[in-house]
Design a protein around this nucleic acid. Structure first.
Lengths: 347, 347
DNA sequence: TCTAGCACTCTCACCATGAGAGTGCAAAAA
DNA sequence: TTTTTGCACTCTCATGGTGAGAGTGCTAGA
């Protein structure tokens, strides 16, 4: 992916300055301008020659004959891969981010904070993918009887996250019956990860069928249902969408509408974040590189975050391709690390 | 509020046709056009006279000297109050809405469905205010010990909705201690509504302080915390926002951005919905009537929904002021009723 | 009270025009 | 060979004029 292009040092410098200027100004930058800004003591004509080369390589283009040059998607890609110098955050900035994350027991709330922190700090939209169920382990199961054959199933995951679901059963179970069932399940499942739990429950259902224990059978079934029905649509948080409107080149209302639809649908987002999840660390998607038309004109900067050595999820921001990468990248990076630290310190 | 204006029958008809046409076409409608569309056998010149009257009353205005007339906010208000004839939904349509609501035990999910149903059916943004905590009663409290001085507090409200919160305590409590505490609390609180619960807990804390029962003290405190910390920001759902982009007159990107910010903030939304909540039944806010600048150019149609005779919350849609009221109003109305029916059938 | 006629106004699309910015190329300079 | 200078050329954008179209207000007449 990271292509190495043969470029003279001068061309590299010019390319770098050009992209930086374009990011700042948002307008095509011409040779005269570039000559002054680059600090090279060469004339505009020389620059024009270099620009012609860069154009041939597909790194820049001009919107029309007599405008300056604008980086192409490929140009941006080359820029972030080979030219970009990120600004490290000051300690104060890091502390600022950290304090916005705050302290909270609940993982959901923590991730929401991470999301709003990111969108505030970058002034762009942020996305947070919440930990994938596969990596979580069950630490406790409880049943509470409600009225009318309904039972509240409580799953405690990773000893910190709580999920509950109300299910309807075929008959009433007493408090003690349910307690007994819970004890049984807890001894069976303690510490196991969700995929293994599913498997184990299926096994157990087979075994118990022979013993004709209808009660246990029902309990297993309800646990299965509680685990299975997990809301898949709740896997990604988006916030600060409105900050994208009118930012950078995102000014066409119809395209914006499609982008926002994608946020609402979340399906495409999820697939994209899945790619990021497998890529480990910081990743940058520029424009349509991601494979989705709607993200044309946008860039996505993501970072995975981990807890106890395992990759748990992905955080990131999405903004116009013309975004201040050198600022945004470290913010995403640091936020992911801080998030990981928060997750760890409680585990 | 509902002002009665002295208008001739002819003026009423013309006003009605004008608004309807404007809603359809989105362009100022001229006297010639109106003469044909109204079905009245009068000339355009006569219509012009009537228009001049309507303009004087502030019901219509022309964007410039020689354009047709456009309804003002006040004109729309008059239209919906006195001229509008809503189309009843066909039975098939009602069934369609109902099936989209689906069946679900969880109230949160039901409300989400209501929200997406509304925005799908109207092709506008929908808002749903979830039941206010004040009207809910506690039916059960449970405590589960987790590791490291942390306790999971489970509140079951109205015997169907579940809230949980993890809190950290000063020492470890055993399972049986917590069970005892839960029993005590349950006998104390069963069926009481939240405000009374808060009050009662405070009383009890006073009484117990004398007995120096540190354990009970802590339990009360944690329950208090669990009830108190209730996420106020989770009180309103918005969906289908993207449908507003470019719809009707909502085409200015900066104004759209502010509108979307309001959706994200939710604070203003909440205040507005609070007004709707006290108004009972269907309510219509046109443009800035609501008192919020951001909603200029938008209309909000809301309906309260109830369960067992009590008003629980508000559902509604928000769209351009130029919206097909005769279709949208019954959709909101019916959806609110269906929602109420779902809530009741399970209570 | 309503209608017909008419002058008037305003928008919008269209075109031409000129300034400004930037290019590409060729010839001269380094 | 590389860089610079000079110059013709192109394209955008803002400006202003023009004419068609739509609609109005007003006045006089039915």
């Amino acid at each position: 992916m990271a292509e190495t292009l043969e470029l003279t040092e001068r061309a590299r410098i010019l390319m770098k300055v050009l992209v930086e200027r374009y990011i700042e100004e948002g307008a095509p930058v011409g040779s005269r301008n570039l000559a002054r800004a680059s600090g090279l003591s060469v004339s505009a004509a020389t620059i024009r020659n270099v620009m012609a080369d860069l154009e041939e390589m597909g790194l820049v283009c001009s919107p029309h004959t007599s405008a300056g040059r604008v980086p192409t998607a490929r140009g941006f890609r080359f820029f972030v891969d080979s030219l970009l110098e990120v600004q490290e955050l000051s300690e104060q900035e890091v502390r600022g981010l950290n304090s916005r994350l705050g302290h909270t027991e609940e993982i959901g709330q923590l991730l929401e904070r991470a999301s709003s922190t990111l969108s505030e700090a970058t002034q762009m939209a942020s996305i947070v993918m919440i930990p994938r169920s596969e990596h979580r382990s069950i630490s406790q199961v409880e049943f509470l009887p409600l009225s009318e054959n309904r039972v509240l199933v409580i799953l405690i995951l990773d000893d910190r996250e709580v999920q509950n679901r109300i299910i309807t059963t075929s008959r009433n179970y007493s408090h003690s019956e349910l307690e007994q069932a819970a004890n049984y399940l807890n001894s069976l499942l303690a510490g196991a990860e969700l995929p293994r739990v599913r498997e184990q429950i299926l096994q157990e259902m087979g075994a118990i069928r022979d013993q004709l224990d209808a009660m246990m059978q029902a309990v297993l079934e309800m646990t299965q249902r509680a685990i299975g029905e997990e809301g898949e649509d709740k896997d990604v948080l988006v916030s600060g969408e409105s900050k994208l409107m009118g930012a950078g080149e995102l000014t066409d209302i119809e395209r914006l509408r499609q982008l926002f639809e994608a946020f609402e649908e979340k399906r495409e987002m999820l697939q994209l974040l899945d790619q990021a999840l497998h890529g480990q660390g910081i990743q940058i998607f520029i424009g349509k590189e991601s494979g989705y038309e709607v993200f044309d004109g946008c860039s996505l900067i993501t970072s995975t975050y981990e807890a106890d050595g395992d990759v748990m999820g992905v955080v990131g921001v999405i903004g116009p391709t013309r975004m201040p990468y050198q600022r945004v990248i470290p913010i995403v990076d640091v936020t992911a690390r801080l998030l990981a630290a928060h997750l760890k310190s409680r585990g």
